[in-house]
């Protein structure tokens, strides 16, 4: 079952994708991030939408504006993103997992077993 919000506004999706790149180390701290026009061209979206995504990340302290230069990954951004994602992990991953398990009639113990025995190389 799809939950509402599975298809979120494009600017939220884009902000998350940039955050993913910071978490994954593709965008390092103190480096410049692509401009609104570069993002718009790359993802083929309206530049105003790209601007909203960048502003969302500025508001949450992940990016900082440097006047006349552009936007940069804030120092400590990776760490703070990791903490935020930790906090959201239960709601975003564990809850849907348990909901599906309940629909299938799996107990919490059976789910725990599945996690423990899930092939290591695929973890």
């Amino acid at each position: 079952m799809d939950v509402i919000g599975a298809e979120r506004p494009i600017f939220v999706e884009l902000a998350d994708r940039i955050a993913d790149d910071i978490l994954g180390g593709l965008l390092e701290e103190d480096t410049q991030v692509p401009s609104t026009n570069e993002l718009a061209a790359f993802y083929r979206i309206n530049p105003a939408t790209a601007g909203k995504a960048l502003n969302r990340l500025v508001d949450s302290g992940v990016l900082i504006k440097r006047r006349g230069l552009g936007m940069f990954v804030a120092p400590g951004a990776q760490q703070s993103l990791r903490q935020a994602r930790h906090a959201a992990f239960a709601d975003e991953y564990v809850r849907p997992l348990l909901e599906e398990a309940r629909r299938l009639g799996l107990t919490a113990d059976q789910v725990t077993d599945l996690i423990h025995h899930y092939p290591q190389e695929q973890k």
């Binding site: 410049q32 401009s35 609104t36 026009n37 530049p47 105003a48 601007g51 960048l54 230069l69 552009g70």
Partner: peptide, 8 residues
């Protein structure tokens, strides 16, 4: 140049 505001 990188501009992050909307175009003028």
């Amino acid at each position: 140049t990188h501009t992050h505001t909307l175009p003028p």
